[in-house]
Write a protein that binds this DNA or RNA. Structure first.
Length: 595
RNA sequence: GCGUUCAUAGCUCAACGGAUAGAGCGCAGCCCUGCGAAGGCUGAAAUCGAGGUUCGAUUCCUCGUGGACGCACCA
């Protein structure tokens, strides 16, 4: 990667006595192209240490670079300049851009990919059983999937895990409601029939009703707890109802994942760790929670407090976390530790990434620290990606009050809007009804995904129908449209082979703008992965598309002035299409050839 | 009360301590007898407040203001 090569030659020039590692050498793309393609401020930093004027230091670095026989000086670099207070600016040769262009069209979907051999676990999605898939779970699902795609692209062996909430007291509530309202007094056979006919909406309504009715009848709380206890004790009836609700939910989630083009390698829910052996013998259900409690006791990391078993942290770095409640029941802290232990043992990853909402930040700090104290993990990297929440203009959505915005509703609405535009558009005239349906799906869903992924994961997202369904401006459809436009031109040109234009060819400003962006794709991917921020890719690809559209509106491709120009513009068009397609693919967005 | 985090244009968001703070929506105007107008161009419009560190601060530190999230028997 060109960026790394530049860092290397600067590193060689500044000498090892300065405390800057190669990776710390700051290189930016100046906004103003007069300042070059890359710019570094190292001279400004070193000037302080040396007590010399910054420009003088910059000049020294510059001549050191120019006086060393680097290959890229011949092949790629036009000039190196010292500018302003002491920036060193690098300008690229046309040959460099042409070389990158060639790689884009030759390497296609491999352009920018990496060869890491590390293993990384990514936990994402993790919806709750017996609730419909809300807009809130969209974030974890698609951010997690994008991270998965990014790391896979960089060569990592990724293990994607869905960790659904299929255990705990909320399930007691569902059981209580189901039994009391639908199953009471029925024979086993009748019950089975009723359970088979249930939908996710039924379950969700029961859950919401539970909380409204609870206000009038506080005894329900006790009833729910009793049902959960039955479940824990392997009561056959409780188990049958629970299994049924779980099955309904998982089937529903599969449908959504399919719609979203999300692929998850393993679904291992909370019950896997919580339920005792008898419940899930086929899944090796030994008492994983008990083992954790035992281990923490033996290592003297846990102590009793007010009747509960807690894990205090050294120097009160974090508030204590609870392993066992006063009634002896484990908590989700215990569960996540068991989870960590299980994953370390089964996969031996170098990194574990967990993607959840921000509200769990403290919890995962506690889990990670406790896991280190207990040596469940060693040098492995533990990362919690905490995404902000979807909220309405009024505040947070509450499942309990039934305010959830159903993802499916959003998706159908988006698909419908896309369909309307497709019907009006002339560009899709030749498409069959089936193809139009397919395109509407890609565009509608792509828009919803892009709306989410283009924002920094950490921030909250204000849910706005108009924005999420927007098909114009900085949106998924804008990118898809630009891609389809490029493809259309290629089709009209007969998809002829490209000849790499010779370096005498002059590029217009608009063409250079695209070239100066497109080659950054590999470093953008790397940065997005390192920061666990898919929005870095989104911002980048939007800029590329903008640059292309600007070019498109100022120059002709098919009717270019001469043959050589036409060739180079076709090449540029093909490369742009490739960059857009690769970027969208990392974001999990489909790029239709026509729309 | 304590902790974490955020505050950028009317709205929704970018910006790795760097050069003139970028976009989108919306608003005002312009551009298809030429490759896809789901497009392009032009314009108005912003760093919460007060200090500090720095050659240079939206970015780092302190204080204040306002919001979000969390702080042991929900996950």
């Amino acid at each position: 990667m060109i960026r790394e090569e530049l860092q290397q030659i600067i590193f060689n020039a500044i000498g090892k006595e300065f405390k800057l590692s190669k990776e710390e050498i700051f290189l930016e793309h100046p906004e103003n192209s007069d300042h070059g393609d890359y710019s570094t401020n190292v001279a400004l930093i070193l000037a302080k240490q040396l007590g010399k004027p910054p420009r003088e230091v910059a000049e020294e670095i510059r001549s050191h670079i120019l006086n060393t026989k680097y290959k890229i000086l011949d092949t790629s670099i036009e000039k190196v300049e010292v500018a302003g207070p002491g920036f060193i600016n690098f300008f690229f040769k046309k040959e460099f851009f042409l070389g990158e262009l060639r790689q884009m069209v030759e390497q296609k979907e491999k352009y920018g990919s990496g060869k890491s051999k590390e293993k990384i676990i990514i936990e994402y999605s993790s919806p709750n059983i017996a609730k419909s898939f809300g807009i809130g779970h969209l974030r974890s699902t698609i951010i997690g999937q994008a991270i998965y795609n990014l790391y896979t692209f960089l060569g990592y062996k990724c293990i994607g895990i869905n960790y659904p909430g299929d255990w705990g007291t909320p399930h007691g509530k569902i059981l209580y409601q189901l039994y009391g309202k639908k199953l009471k007094g029925k024979t086993a056979k009748e019950q089975k029939k009723i359970l088979n006919g249930l939908t996710i909406e039924n379950l969700e309504k029961l859950y919401v009703d539970f909380h409204t009715e609870l206000a009038l009848n506080p005894a329900m709380e006790e009833g729910a707890r009793a049902w959960f206890k039955k479940l824990e004790q392997n009561n056959a009836e409780a188990r049958a109802i629970w299994e049924a609700t779980r099955k309904i939910s998982l089937r529903e989630f599969e449908r959504i994942y399919d719609l979203l083009n999300v692929k998850i390698d393993y679904t291992i829910g909370e019950s896997f760790f919580s339920a005792k052996g008898e419940i899930s013998p086929s899944r090796g259900g030994e008492d994983k929670m008990g083992q954790i409690v035992k281990e923490f006791k033996e290592k003297k990391l846990a102590r009793e407090s007010e009747g509960a078993l807690i894990v205090p942290f050294p120097n009160d770095e974090l508030p204590p976390a609870m392993l066992l409640k006063t009634d002896g029941v484990t908590t989700y802290f215990t569960r996540d530790l068991a989870n960590m232990k299980y994953r370390m043992k089964r996969w031996k990853p170098s990194t574990i990434v967990i993607e959840t909402g921000v509200e769990q930040t403290l919890h995962f700090k506690q889990v990670f620290l406790a896991a280190r104290l207990a040596e469940i993990v060693d040098n492995e990297k533990l990362v919690h990606i905490a995404h902000g929440l979807y909220r309405s203009k009024e505040g947070k959505f509450s499942t309990r009050k039934g305010q959830t915005i159903h993802l499916e509703e959003v998706l159908s609405e988006a698909i419908e809007r896309a369909r309307t535009i497709i019907e009006e558009s002339e560009t899709t005239r030749g498409l069959s009804d089936k193809e139009k349906t397919e395109v509407a799906r890609s565009v509608g869903i792509g828009g919803v995904k892009y709306n989410d992924l283009s924002q920094h994961p950490a921030g909250d997202i204000v849910f706005d129908w108009e924005k999420i369904l927007n098909l114009k401006g900085n949106s998924g459809p804008y990118l898809q449209y630009t891609y389809a436009r490029c493809k259309s031109i290629a089709r009209k040109a007969g998809n002829s082979k490209f000849q790499i234009p010779n370096s005498k060819l002059q590029f217009s400003k608009e063409e250079l703008d695209i070239l100066r962006l497109a080659y950054r794709f590999p470093e953008v991917v790397k940065e997005a992965a390192e920061k666990f921020s898919p929005n870095v890719v989104a911002t980048f690809v939007f800029e590329v598309a903008q640059a292309y559209n600007n070019f498109y509106n100022t120059h002709r491709v098919l009717q270019a002035e001469d043959k050589a120009t036409k060739q180079s513009r076709l090449l540029l068009t093909a490369a742009t299409a490739q960059i857009i397609k690769n970027s969208l693919s990392l974001l999990g967005i489909v790029a239709p050839e026509r729309m």
